[in-house]
């Protein structure tokens, strides 16, 4: 059937472009058929529920539902921007995101490169397995353990400090230490986990390339620079763009557990703020508005990064 359609269209030059489209669609029909389940999934489970973000423009309450709740326009956004702590929340969120991007993002890459240089396979595998273990500990466990080790008055670290004749040195109740402590815990917990994807990408690099360069007498660092890194470049670019999409979404549980009266000035972020004012008080619409704002920032960043990477010869995502 599709064949006949194509031939008839071919006879009419006016419809040339359309017929080209039809020809492509027909030739690649299996590609599109394979795409259908995925499209259906995204419509059903992503785009239909996405209507829910509209409650950011309502005074939503569960009893009236989406249809019955009152529409209030940009009221919740105005409130967010007028919030005295808005600037502080934005600054803190951006700072932690920056730490995540500058330190948290490259760490798995460096680790993966280091692992890639290991020659003994068993050692490589054992280390891989060990460094991804912390990812499976919930933040509650991580933070509690950190507290007991470093903060607890007769704990290891404090006893050691005391044996040196120094005063108690607090990490968790010191605003200056909050960001370094936060990122160290993130690095400890998640950089091993992050290597998995890069190791998979590294597996795709042809060993012959290394052999050839070894023949040329290239040093190990040169090999890393000229072969290994280019081999995973597109993975790095894509992960970076994706990372920007949720750059303002910080791990709520982690920060919530570290947050206290002393470090709130630097540790309070949008997510903890929303928890305090929104979820505890049942202000769905306001929380959604804050989420929408964070999303818009993410969208702008992703679009920019995507455009930028295309400009520099990478494929980008879309």
């Amino acid at each position: 059937m599709s064949h006949s359609t194509i031939s008839t269209r071919h006879e009419r030059p006016v419809r040339k472009r359309r017929s080209a489209l039809w020809r492509d669609l027909s030739r690649d029909r299996w590609i599109y058929i394979l795409l259908l389940p995925g499209i259906a999934y995204f419509i059903l489970f992503k785009y239909i529920p996405m209507g829910g973000v509209l409650i950011a423009f309502q005074d939503y309450n569960a009893f009236s539902g989406f249809g019955g709740s009152e529409w209030v326009g940009f009221k919740h956004f105005e409130r967010l921007f007028a919030e005295p702590s808005f600037y502080r929340l934005l600054r803190n969120t951006l700072m932690l995101s920056l730490y995540n991007l500058v330190l948290g993002f490259p760490a798995p890459i460096i680790l993966a490169l280091m692992l890639n240089e290991l020659r003994m396979k068993w050692l490589k595998r054992s280390i891989q397995t060990m460094i991804y273990v912390p990812h499976f500990m919930s933040w509650v466990v991580v933070v509690t353990m950190f507290f007991v080790l470093f903060e607890s008055y007769d704990g290891l670290f404090q006893s050691w400090i005391a044996s040196l004749g120094l005063d108690k040195f607090t990490i968790m109740m010191n605003a200056d230490w909050f960001r370094p402590m936060y990122i160290l815990q993130v690095l400890w917990r998640d950089s091993g986990w992050g290597t998995v994807i890069y190791l998979a990408a590294l597996a795709g690099i042809s060993p012959e390339l290394y052999e050839a360069s070894r023949m040329d007498g290239a040093s190990r660092l040169r090999q890393i620079w000229h072969i290994t890194l280019p081999g995973i470049r597109s993975t790095i670019v894509i992960l970076f763009i994706l990372k920007l999409s949720d750059v303002l979404d910080l791990s709520f549980e982690h920060i919530f557990l570290l947050l206290n009266a002393v470090n709130r000035d630097v540790a309070d972020v949008f997510d903890t703020y929303v928890y305090r004012v929104g979820l505890l008080q049942g202000q769905m619409s306001y929380s959604t508005a804050v989420g929408l704002f964070k999303g818009l920032v993410g969208l702008v960043l992703v679009s920019f990064a995507n455009w930028f990477s295309k400009k520099f010869g990478e494929e980008g995502i879309f």
Partner: peptide, 18 residues
């Protein structure tokens, strides 16, 4: 049920929760 997408859509968006 999946074929009844339209129904779900209507329910979610128009909130005929009543």
């Amino acid at each position: 049920r999946i074929l009844g997408v339209g129904l779900a859509l209507a329910l979610v968006l128009s909130g005929c929760s009543g």
